[in-house]
């Protein structure tokens, strides 16, 4: 870590000059994004400063229960986000529960294995390792699940006639929904698959870049990145499969009917 260069707040303020330049150009060219830009930038500064403070104190306190509490808070927020990103949602508590459970269980299991078997920090739940790892895995699983559920619900609604035509010819609900389940799972997995394919050539992942900037040997940084990518893709895949099957089940019944009355469209 000898090569680590510490940044001063002055450096950061200076870096924001380019953003200010954007704002000036936006006003001058009447692009109408200056207000959004300013709001988002301010929000980012406040959120990150707070998170920095929070993490610093969490690392200092070293309490397993507090770490668990933060993890649960993250999971709750991600669950709500999955729900909010769907244009059509399953009605009632299941609308939250299906995505949340699939995401939470997959991320939970993968992160537990990663901490207790692979990385093995001391103690295994050390927030310095557990929270960033959980955050990266959860963020990707959340995006995957919300994409797949949104795709599934839109497809089932749009293709109602085609699905019911198959049911009427004696197909069971899984046969009738198969192309749309597959489509939904692909939509959820694609960002992770594409990220793996482009990594290192088109994009240098943020975590690896960060480690290299803070003085870690590139080979070591690569190892960490590979580990994280496997965990991310694995957890996202599991979460997407469980969520899609769960939602498909909620939108049909045991008499092999398509139950679009269990679906509603959000008003946005």
């Amino acid at each position: 870590m000898a090569e680590y260069i510490q940044l001063s707040y002055f450096d950061i303020a200076l870096a924001s000059v380019f953003l200010l330049l954007n704002g000036v150009l936006s006003i001058w060219l009447r692009l109408g994004v200056a207000r959004n830009l300013a709001f988002a930038a301010t929000r980012m500064v406040v959120q990150l400063l707070l998170v920095g403070l929070l993490l610093k104190s969490l690392f200092a306190i070293q309490s397993p229960w507090l770490t668990l509490l933060v993890a649960l808070f993250m999971a709750g927020f991600a669950t709500r986000e999955i729900w909010a990103r769907q244009e059509r949602r399953v009605k009632g508590w299941r609308g939250l529960a299906i995505g949340g459970t699939a995401m939470g269980a997959s991320v939970g299991v993968v992160a537990l294995v990663a901490l207790t078997v692979l990385v093995q920090p001391e103690p295994w739940w050390a927030p310095r390792y557990a929270l960033p790892l959980l955050g990266m895995i959860m963020g990707n699983a959340m995006t995957g699940v919300s994409l797949s559920l949104d795709t599934l619900h839109t497809a089932l609604k749009r293709e109602q006639r085609a699905i019911e035509a198959q049911l009427l010819l004696g197909a069971d609900k899984w046969q009738a929904m198969r192309p749309f389940i597959r489509q939904a799972m692909r939509a959820g997995m694609m960002p992770s698959i594409n990220a793996m394919a482009a990594i290192g050539v088109v994009s240098l992942p943020g975590m690896m870049t960060g480690q290299i900037l803070s003085g870690v040997d590139p080979n070591e940084a690569v190892k960490y990145q590979l580990l994280v990518m496997f965990l991310i893709t694995g957890a996202t895949g599991l979460a997407v499969i469980f969520a899609t099957l769960g939602s498909a089940r909620a939108l049909t019944d045991d008499r092999d009917r398509l139950r679009l009355d269990h679906l509603y469209t959000s008003k946005t």
């Binding site: 109602q160 006639r161 085609a162 699905i163 019911e164 035509a165 198959q166 009427l168 010819l169």
Partner: peptide, 13 residues
């Protein structure tokens, strides 16, 4: 399969 329904508008998958 035994009680076959032909809807007014057919679906194609």
């Amino acid at each position: 399969r035994k009680v076959a329904y032909l809807p007014a508008e057919s679906g194609w998958w």
